[in-house]
Design a protein around this nucleic acid. Structure first.
Lengths: 264, 264
DNA sequence: GATCTTCAAAGATCAGATTTATTGCCGTCC
DNA sequence: GGACGGCAATAAATCTGATCTTTGAAGATC
């Protein structure tokens, strides 16, 4: 984000810089498969190749161990663990995978997960949301409508994310609330991957409104059903857009403005 | 330095003993609320109170930071983070909460979560399970039937856990698969907390069989519906047992055998 | 009273030494 | 020939003391 950012600010969180760097680099290498399961390193090789002291490399390795990416054994070294041992819900790990080659697979995985839990969370929200939360959801829907009309996809995305995050927190279950970041990623991925029509489906927005209404009125079954429709529509729209994109030159590398028809 | 320790074997998994001890102790204190959000410690106080060197306390703190339990800032020290910042999906954190005073709340939270995702996972499993996985699910159901008849709750629990874990892995979505441990805890908590009737509901077992059948035949809607019934029945049975238990002396502390009627 | 400067506290990092558990190897014994 | 037991090398785990860097707050300046 903001690649050409000349921020004079010393960055918001540059606390333990080196450890973070090493952690990030190692984590991404593992996630990318550059260090496959079973690969072995030594602490010495780590601090040598990153030019840091043992303290730093050690702490990075500890955190990777806590995430389940590696195990460390005496006399053997640091062994990369099989994927089945990974804490796939760790936000850092999710980010690494979204930034890497596995982006599409990870988004697919997250979408499927979302399909499972969001309707249930909507049902709970209908039972537990405070009036303020219900109002915030309604406000988010209103913003979605406005931004859809303005064809401002970014602003639409923001409102959409706000809607879902508010709903998840309103479920009163902290674990659903903790999944808000994950839904953010799914929604953002859809928008930024050309898997979203230029003007969002009005029906989809109406269903969001329906969820907000059901939450306000305390009708769990209705909230759940409407959320289920939202998910189904999203999957459907995504499939349609993917088919549409597949029939045209890949927009990934150099999006030639000439080939873009109208929506933008 | 093994003062009065005659242990012949050095324990199966005593890798980084000290770090793990400090991590565990600190984590549990935070989870228990002994160190509330906003509380501040210094590294020095940590290694002083646990009698370890800076390296050890520092690494423990790093891991806690990665879990979102604390943040560390220069000149300030180590600050306990509010619960909203915690990585509530971290297995270690879940275990701490299950072992502490919050056990019931955590189980409730996990149960709600499970209600959301398990039906969806069952649907996916119906689309993706290998014949071996489908067979394993059927075998687990068969074991459940046998153990229910034998009134062996522990063995029943094991088969039940095996059924759900297999189904989650068979969903083909690694994030669902990673939730198997969580479901294990929910099921175990139910059994070990006297929230489970001495002989399991035959209907519940039949629904498990239905899921297994639907998975084998590749019928997602049926699998999902049957799983939904399982969840609903579990919630129902649990509520009934809780009401039943509430009407009798708490079995927690000293289970007086006299007051136990028949089922055991 | 607001801004600037200085200082000290506390983590971050480094570096060297020491301890301890593992593992592969080798020799011995059955 | 294979199993058991001791040996030594190895790499992590831990300790320790020192230095660097950031930053909150007290004090000085206007």
């Amino acid at each position: 984000m903001a690649p050409t950012d000349p921020t004079p600010r010393p960055a918001p969180a540059a606390a333990n810089q080196r450890r973070e760097d090493v952690l990030d680099a190692l984590g991404r290498r593992i996630v990318a498969g550059d260090l496959p399961a079973g690969a072995v390193l030594t602490l010495e090789s780590v601090d040598a190749s990153y030019g840091v002291s043992r303290s730093v490399s050690r702490e990075a390795v500890q955190v990777l161990g806590a995430m389940g990416l590696i195990t460390s054994r005496r006399r053997v070294g640091i062994t990369v663990s099989p994927r089945s041992a990974w804490n796939v819900f760790d936000p850092r790990l999710i980010r690494w995978r979204l930034d890497g080659d596995e982006r599409d697979e990870q988004l697919q995985t997250l979408s499927e997960l979302r399909a499972g839990f969001e309707p249930a969370a909507a049902g709970l929200a209908a039972l537990r949301a405070t009036p303020e939360q219900a109002a915030a959801m309604a406000a988010a829907v209103s913003d979605m409508t406005v931004q859809a009309r303005a064809q401002d996809l970014e602003a639409y995305l923001e409102a959409d994310q706000r809607f879902h995050a508010t709903m998840l927190v309103a479920s009163g279950n902290e674990m659903y609330g903790a999944l808000a970041g994950l839904v953010d990623e799914v929604l953002a991925g859809r928008t930024h991957h050309d898997l979203m029509p230029a003007d969002p489906n009005p029906e989809a927005i109406e269903w969001h409104a329906e969820v907000a209404r059901a939450v306000r009125r305390g009708e769990p079954a209705e909230a759940e059903a409407a959320m289920r429709r939202i998910i189904a529509e999203a999957a459907d729209a995504q499939a349609r857009m993917a088919a549409y994109d597949a029939a045209r030159p890949a927009p990934g590398a150099a999006p030639d403005p000439e080939t873009e028809p109208s929506a933008e």
